[in-house]
Write a protein that binds this DNA or RNA. Structure first.
Lengths: 231, 231
DNA sequence: GGTTTATGAATGAAAG
DNA sequence: CTTTCATTCATAAACC
């Protein structure tokens, strides 16, 4: 049952960072529809909401520039309402969007643990990255430090032994790029932060880069009154 | 297996096309302009990670033999670390690998089940059960609504003005494609600042228009599906 | 060569 | 807020 075809080749040796954004198809009006209208409902077709470019941009501005991480119901509703002209959208979509973004971001940023530069290390990708060279992101989260040199990590499951057994022979070592990165933080952010303690995060941030340099700063003076800024 | 409507997406670079959102392009969403022929030099060219044979074998053993289906962050990290000697790999690759394998296996099982059911009759409609929209999880929460007509919502944060400025005239097409991705952020927000509660009804189903449905759904799949052997 | 398949990656939606 | 499930997009590799 698993037709796994082994491909013997390892090609890519570099970092990838890709981003694909699908084209948002949605109109302001009715949704769904797609093909089967009166017919077999068996095809959920498009239930899933996807932000239109304009909606996405606004949402991102709110999140990154404004620092709005946890919109409360009223805010969600307001946002949703304002985004409606740009395409079909519901409150829950806004809600999930913020929740997912926040969750995913927090997992990425687990800790920028120093990579224990003992003197060896960190190499960089040499050839690979195209020209700009700059970015590769990778980070390891937990850093279960312990001893990994000799290859023992503990997964709390005995995985360790499993690993050990196989790890005896490493032959195809290729490049072993690992560089810490990051430290950037775009918005100085306000108060909301605090920690969270969250404990961990999954994968490392693969993407990053972009022009981002800093979004901040572009958004000022939107408040008519000095008033309260940011929650 | 899945008859996917083929759409030759052109390759998009990382941000690319913006498109009016208000067009229901389903299926034929031909993208416009790919234009590119020789253009867009910035192609990631190196994207996707692929496991080396050794890595794959280890991953499979963990999954199939050890039954590890949902590795937690620490495990992911440990696995990743141990796989590094065999080739470049990142935490997220491990994360996605498990995630995908699990999803695809369950999907396969589901398909089979549907086929079997399909053979027999039983149509569904469980119409009886509440078709009504009973399911919206909540309705308007804050109820700040009051407005909709005039469009002034009031996010209690001045968000409104923010929105207003941008939304005043929604012209979508801006040239400002922000891609989804996030840089980084420190975040953390546990619950300071006000709300905290956060567990109340989130989004509203409000207008939605979703179908609500019943549980019994039945989906017959017409997949010819020679399908995989599995089992 | 175009088409299909396998699978990495991304993300909306939910469950816990 | 954290973790998992489901869909979907994209693309390299295999197929024809």
């Amino acid at each position: 049952m698993e037709p796994r075809t082994l491909q013997l080749m390892d090609l890519q040796t570099q970092q990838h960072m890709e981003l694909q954004q699908q084209q948002p198809t949605e109109g302001g009006g009715s949704n769904q529809a797609a093909g089967s209208s009166a017919n077999t409902p068996i095809r959920p077709t498009n239930n899933r909401w996807a932000p239109t470019p304009a909606q996405l941009r606004i949402l991102q501005e709110l999140y990154y520039d404004r620092g709005l991480k946890n919109p409360n119901p009223e805010q969600i509703q307001g946002i949703c309402l304002h985004l409606k002209p740009y395409g079909q959208i519901e409150n829950k979509n806004v809600f999930f969007w913020f929740q997912n973004l926040k969750a995913r971001e927090s997992q990425k940023l687990k800790e920028i643990r120093n990579v224990r530069v003992g003197g060896s290390l960190d190499l960089k990708f040499g050839s690979t990255s195209s020209t700009d060279g700059g970015r590769s992101i990778d980070l390891n989260f937990g850093s279960t430090d312990s001893t990994d040199d000799d290859g023992s990590i503990d997964l709390t499951l005995g995985l360790q032994s499993f690993m050990e057994r196989r790890g005896g022979d490493h032959q195809e070592v290729e490049t072993l790029p690992l560089f810490p990165e990051h430290g950037e933080n775009i918005l100085g952010n306000p108060k909301t932060t605090s920690e969270g303690g969250s404990s961990f995060g999954y994968y490392s941030g693969g993407s990053g880069g972009y022009n981002s340099g800093s979004h901040v700063s572009l958004e000022l003076s939107l408040n008519p009154s000095g008033a309260a800024d940011l929650a």
